[in-house]
Structure formats: C-alpha cells, structure tokens
Design a protein around this nucleic acid. Structure first.
Lengths: 119, 119
DNA sequence: TCATTTGCTTACAATTTTGTAAGTGTCACT
DNA sequence: AGTGACACTTACAAAATTGTAAGCAAATGA
C-alpha cells in the first residue's frame, strides 16, 4: 500500500496537476504494464494466458499490475458469475484510447533505441 | 548505482529488447524527468534556473535526473571552459525528438485525467 | 469423489527510487 | 582576505517497486 502522507506522494500529485503528461506516464509506468496492455490490444485474455504470454512475469506482480490497471479503469475484469467461471481481462475503451500513446512510444523507441549487442 | 546482476535489471533489459515502447518509457520515467524536458524545450537553462523553475525538486534529485538524461543523450551539458563558466543544460536533437511523444502523453492526460478536487 | 489446474493472496526479502541534510570546491564581489 | 552565490556531492534514511516462495479456495476434469 502506498503512503499518502509522504513527500514522494505529494510531489507526484502536484506534478500531475500541472503536467498532464506526467499523469499519463504514471498510468502506464510499471515494469509490465505496457506489455500487458499490448497483449490485451490483440485480444481478451485470462490470467493464465497472460502469464504464459509474458515470459518472466511472476504471479504476484501480474496480479498487482492487473489490479492497478483495473483501478485506473484501463481494463475490465469480466467474471460471469451467473453461469461461467473463469474471469477474462479485457481492455476498456479508455484502455484502447491509449493505443495512440503506445504507438508513439513504440515509434520513438524503434527509431532511437541503440542496437542491442547479441550475447 | 544500479546492480546489473539482479532479476529486476535482467527483466527490464529483456523487455526493452522485445518492446520498444518499454524502452522509450524507461528513458522518460523518473519523477521529474518530463518536467525537466518540458522546461528545456522552452529554452536552455542553468542548474539553478531549473531548480527554481521546478518547485519541490531537491538538489540531489535534480542532479541525478540531469545525469541520467545526459547519459541517455537527451541533453547536453555545455560548459564553456575556455572563457565562460556556468554550465548550461540544453536539449540535444535526440531530446527534441521526444517532443512528439510528450505531446502524445499530454494530449491523453488532458483528455482523460480526472478533475482534481481543489483543497 | 478426488486429484489437478486456475486464479489468485500472503509473508518476506532484495532492489530501486526518492527525499533529508549537510558539506565541498569554484567563482564573483567587496 | 572574507563572504556569499552557485553547482554540485556525500552520507544517510524513507519509501516504493519488484522478486521469491509458499499457500489457498474455487472450478475443472477423470
């Protein structure tokens, strides 16, 4: 849980108020969030499918990031309680609206990322 | 200094290799980096000017973020050793090339950021 | 029905980032 | 020579994020 009484927290909030880019950044920042969003742009996925689609992510962190994305309304967790069972994660319209932002990030990275030396 | 032997570090590197958006994100992530970049888009500034332009930032963190931005080649630290004295921070062409990305982030934030309740 | 898979949660630890406070060296001015 | 502004650096601490390992309940499949 994050403290709401720290200088750190206050600084972040203040920045969001006078820099909307910083706000956007905070929504997509986090080790695996972008990857999750990109996967969900292709199609809706279940927890386990995400886990397999994202090598290296652990259960704990996947759950955390999904929860954060859900809290920020970028995705919906659809559990059909009446009949079905397994929940499915699906991008919300708000989540889909990030596509342009992600494309912009991708484009810059593709152009400017230094070539990785293979090992 | 960051450890290069941690799982955390390895995960980050791996992500950068297969998601260029994640790479871009890593370059602009950091509490005050965006703000510094935005200020420098307007005009070149000295350390002290940046400090005054960005309320809340501390000397230590300003120095750290400037160093990171410099290492990522987004800005130049120009110290005219021959005659002048005070170093000036100036965006590199690479730094300026981020303008489109930042605009994209700003646009999304402006449209989708929830209204702040004043206090 | 009973083991297995699935979708998580919990307790804990390592790592990373950010903040606090004080100090250092260079330069300018007096 | 002394004082102060400026551009940092250092030692330290707090906070935040990420990773490791295990556990657990509900749903599924045999």
């Amino acid at each position: 849980m994050r403290k709401t009484t720290s200088t750190n927290y206050e600084n972040e909030q203040a920045l969001h108020e006078f820099c909307s880019a910083a706000f956007t950044l905070s929504v997509i920042s986090g080790r695996w969030k972008l990857t999750i969003l990109v996967k969900l742009m292709e199609r809706d996925l279940r927890y386990g499918e995400l886990k397999h689609a994202i090598p290296g992510i652990t259960e704990r962190v996947l759950a955390l990031q999904l929860k954060a994305l859900e809290e920020d309304q970028l995705l919906l967790k659809i559990s059909d309680d009446t009949s079905g069972h397994l929940p499915i994660y699906s991008l919300s319209p708000l989540g889909r609206s990030l596509e342009a932002v992600i494309n912009s990030l991708s484009a810059w990275g593709t152009t400017h990322q230094p070539i990785q030396t293979s090992r």
